[in-house]
Amino acid sequence: MREPVDLRRQRILAVVQSRGATRVSDLAAELAVSVVTLRRDVEELAREGKLRRGHGVARPMLPEAEQAAPPAEPLVDGGPIAVVVPERHAYLYEMLHGARTTFEEAGIRIGLHIAPPVAGAEQPIVERALADGARGLLIAPRWRSRATEEADYAWLARLPVPTVLMERRPRAGSALHAVDTVCTDHWYGVHLALDHLTGLGHRRIVLAARDDSPTARALRSAFAEIAAAHPDIDRWAVALSSPSAAPDPEAAAAEKPVELPTLMVELGATAALLHGDVDALMLVEKLRDSGVRVPEDCSAIAYDDVVAGLGTTPLTAVSPPKAEVGRAAAELLLRRLERGGSSGPARRMEVLPDLKVRGSTQQAPFTSLTEAPLN
């Protein structure tokens, strides 16, 4: 039987008065109602002057002495938060869901903007969103190359609203060095993958990665650093994961794709780290077509873990905390807004990924290749 509205609201008041500030989502779970229903109750109780509402929480009324000061403008009153992400990017869309949940709990609207795959596409989108009243910005620019990344620094640094970059780490000392960022620690993700593979006895490992995003470039740098210093890695190499995975595949200076099966044989490799999921699944099929079985002949780890587990052989994968990055970015922006967008120390947050072990990795095979002397 459904609980009467008046009784439910009395229970809300009792909980808030006894505990102090209480999250709306926690109250909803405790009273077995939806967050939307609970938020409606809190708004009505606030209108009646029985409690206060704020950033996703219900608070008891202040003592009379504290009520003398005019109340701050509620955070929920105002324009939306503009969220800008690239077109057709499943990884970042998962991050978006984490941010959306946080904003919904705070009663704040978001305006989602999808940037097309064109250099500089984000700037006019952001300018229109601000002209329409957006009061804050979460953004993950595409940044296919370092040049397009650098070109965006100046205008992003001049934005008049609180801004948080998601999964983007601007160059140290750049105009964006003091802008809030929330990222996955991709160095640690590569470390997890290589630690898993070397623990299984793999000594020769290839990274097949994209080169058209900040994440791809971070993975390449981390892999080279870790592999070069790792005492259990004899030989390693980096290859482009697909012909379209470079910023400008037609440029003379662009990295040329190398067939992964050929490189594996030349190196005597028994394991590969593959970025991202779609490329990883296709490369595993290419290996099989060349007579290289996964995981019997070659262990494979994907990096992204959006669809890695859906392959014929579910792929072991480094899994960045995509939703958590979105939530952390949203919470960081909300704290800025609560302070009226005032200046303060910028925060550069990193969240650790984890490794999902599935069916594509196993003990290194005992072959003449793994025992071959180094050239």
Score class of each variant (00 low, 15 high):
Arg288Ala: 13
Val278Phe: 13
Ala46Pro: 05
Ile110Leu: 12
Gly120Ser: 09
Ala32Met: 13
Thr312His: 10
Val278His: 13
Gly79Ala: 02
Asp305Arg: 07
Val258Glu: 15
Leu92Pro: 01
Val351Phe: 09
Asp26Asn: 11
Gln10Pro: 05
Val76Gln: 13
Arg59Ser: 13
Arg169Met: 13
Gly201Val: 05
Gly133Phe: 08
Asp152Cys: 10
Arg39Trp: 10
Asp152Met: 07
Asp232Met: 09
Gly340Thr: 04
Gln17Arg: 11
His89Asp: 14
Pro249Ile: 07
Glu350Ala: 15
Thr367Val: 07
Gly79Trp: 03
Glu331Met: 11
Asp185Asn: 14
Ala272Met: 08
Thr270Trp: 06
Pro365Val: 05
Val357Gln: 05
Gln362Gly: 15
Thr181Asp: 06
Pro231Gln: 11
Arg171Gly: 13
Thr361Cys: 14
Arg358Phe: 00
Ile108Thr: 01
Glu259Asp: 13
Leu219Phe: 10
His89Ile: 07
Gly359Tyr: 02
Thr101Leu: 11
Ala237Asn: 00
Arg2Leu: 14
Val83Pro: 05
Leu137Glu: 00
Val5Asn: 10
Gly291Val: 02
Ser368Val: 10
Thr184Gln: 03
Leu27Arg: 02
Ile108Cys: 02
Glu73Ile: 13
Met95Cys: 15
Gln363Met: 13
His196Thr: 03
Ala72Phe: 03
Ile226Tyr: 12
Val84Phe: 01
Asp277Arg: 03
Ala131Leu: 07
Leu207Ile: 07
Val36Thr: 15
Thr198Lys: 08
Val83Arg: 00
Glu167Lys: 03
Arg19Asn: 10
Arg59Ile: 09
Asp41Phe: 04
Asp132His: 07
Met95Val: 14
His97Asp: 11
Ala14Gln: 15
Leu156Met: 07
Asp77Lys: 15
Arg348Gln: 14
Tyr303Met: 02
Val76Tyr: 12
Pro63Met: 10
Leu240Lys: 01
Ala134Phe: 01
Glu331Val: 00
Leu194Glu: 04
Val161Ser: 00
Gln10Met: 14
Ser221Phe: 09
Ala157Phe: 00
Leu240Asp: 03
Arg288Pro: 00
Asp211Glu: 15
Arg142Tyr: 01
Arg203Trp: 04
Ala330His: 05
Lys286Cys: 04
Ala229Asp: 12
His275Pro: 06
Thr316Met: 02
Leu192Glu: 02
Leu283Glu: 00
Arg100Ile: 14
Ser34Tyr: 11
Arg19Asp: 08
Ser241His: 09
Gly54Phe: 03
Val182Met: 04
Trp236Ser: 10
Glu64Arg: 13
Trp236His: 14
Pro247Ala: 09
Glu266Tyr: 05
Gly189Pro: 06
Thr370Ile: 08
Pro353Ile: 06
